[in-house]
Write a protein that binds this DNA or RNA. Structure first.
Lengths: 254, 254
DNA sequence: CGAGTACTTGAACAGTGTCAAGCTTAGTGG
DNA sequence: CCACTAAGCTTGACACTGTTCAAGTACTCG
């Protein structure tokens, strides 16, 4: 992640590795779990997070079928989640960055239903689920925040469903780029210049398009001077226009 | 709802109208909230459900923008939820029947983001959300069940996203019919003969197809003797084959 | 530096969408 | 109870977006 605009506190907590502390974590400003907690409650939250994992690029955080024990809060890095269907096809259900919670879809089955794969070297806080449920019974603010996070995931998916049913290739791509832009900005990076961590094929899978269509549409945007793209390096030259093409401003919030 | 196979307890609890009792409610066998509760806990659950609503066909249970106070558990009937996007378009995000919980997507915003509209006269248990959160702190089984329900909603949406990105019109339709069949069966109705409560346009909106395509595909299925369709009355003549066309067995479970 | 992966671009094709016309059904009011 | 009307549905012809297949290029990583 280059082009850092605001300095995050990541460095401070890195020295404590491998024991993270929610109280010292900058992700509180995003949508991570501890939003709204106070003094002592942070310590309780810290106490249930037993370790931080490092996941290298290409490695799996969990696989479909793995038994479900923990949720995972992203500290740094970039992930994709992939659902593989019967006929061997893979489908990307999401791209995930700092502050997001992975594994929510596993609660209902007691086992993971998708694969979580790092697209760059990443750090993860493992949150044992049963401990989290216990703590939610003690700390109403944590409980509420957890419910909000699940609810937001549902809302996001509904918006994505609209995108997948109604929108044309260029609208989908524009919405995708605008969404990435917002999310980078919320994390203190440039909203107009960033590095795509996924392949064209992965973008296509996520947006319901073939990789050739993604490639062609990016080329078209470049011809129209909306973006400058060179391999995975991307500059958004006309965010306003991209927003307009996307139609709906938010692909999936945050 | 005709073609009832197993008799439900609906009649028993109807005489108590308007005060429902989870302890006497047959929906426990589905995925409603009180799964796994014991004696006294049922009474606690009953005590927070303050009233049962009747919603007539065509009426709204809630609208996008309404402030969020309660979740709604469906007792009887049939609902659609509709997201309307900026440009005035409507998009059906789900069809909902007995035992399902509506309003989960509203928790994150404190206001509803979609419209819930009855497709037939329905009865609803209103569950004040703050009371539910309180009770979840007291009853671990309820808490866990609530989390499972939200998680399942997320899993479903992911599967629907795969359907919307990858599958052809006939595959979508087949998956849709198989899913309806399963859900009717789980509720004690015939899995092979039922009444569609939604229009072709609503099916199309949900599946990301135009109503003409839905109509054509249904006609095609009929020509191939897979189904018999007359207006909204439907018979599935070859469920196995439909399942095969659908590819993935579950569109959205239960 | 070489091999494999990722990407770009072209041309032909297929599946849905669009537009239009006519038909059926359900609901309303006389 | 029947006639009327609006809404829903079916079907055809045609257009168009995105897919498929293919070939060639450019990266990336060991």
């Amino acid at each position: 992640m280059q082009q850092k605009v605001h300095k995050l506190f990541a460095d401070i907590i890195d020295v404590r590795y491998p024991k993270p502390a929610c109280s010292a974590c900058d992700l509180r400003d995003l949508w991570c779990l501890p939003i709204g907690l106070k003094g002592l409650e942070f310590q309780q939250m810290d106490s249930i997070i037993n370790r931080r994992k490092r996941v290298k690029r290409g490695e799996y955080l969990y696989r479909s079928g793995d038994s479900f024990r923990s949720l995972y809060a992203m500290r740094t890095g970039f992930f994709k989640t992939v659902l593989n269907s019967e006929n061997g096809q893979e489908h990307v259900t999401g791209f995930h960055m700092t502050g997001e919670l992975l594994g929510l879809d596993a609660i209902c089955n007691d086992s993971h239903s998708c694969n979580a794969i790092a697209l760059e070297d990443s750090e993860i806080c493992e949150i044992p689920y049963s401990a989290l449920e216990s703590l939610c019974r003690e700390i109403p603010a944590l409980q509420h925040q957890f419910h909000k996070i699940m609810s937001r995931e549902i809302s996001r998916d509904h918006i994505l469903m609209v995108l997948l049913s109604n929108m044309h290739a260029d609208e989908r791509l524009a919405a995708f780029l605008v969404n990435l832009s917002q999310r980078f900005e919320a994390r203190g990076y440039s909203p107009v210049e960033f590095h795509l961590r996924m392949t064209r094929g992965e973008i296509g899978s996520y947006l319901g398009l073939k990789l050739e269509t993604v490639s062609r549409t990016l080329s078209k945007f470049q011809d129209e001077s909306l973006i400058t793209v060179q391999n995975k390096q991307l500059v958004l030259n006309d965010l306003a226009r991209l927003r307009q093409i996307a139609g709906r401003p938010n692909l999936s919030g945050n």
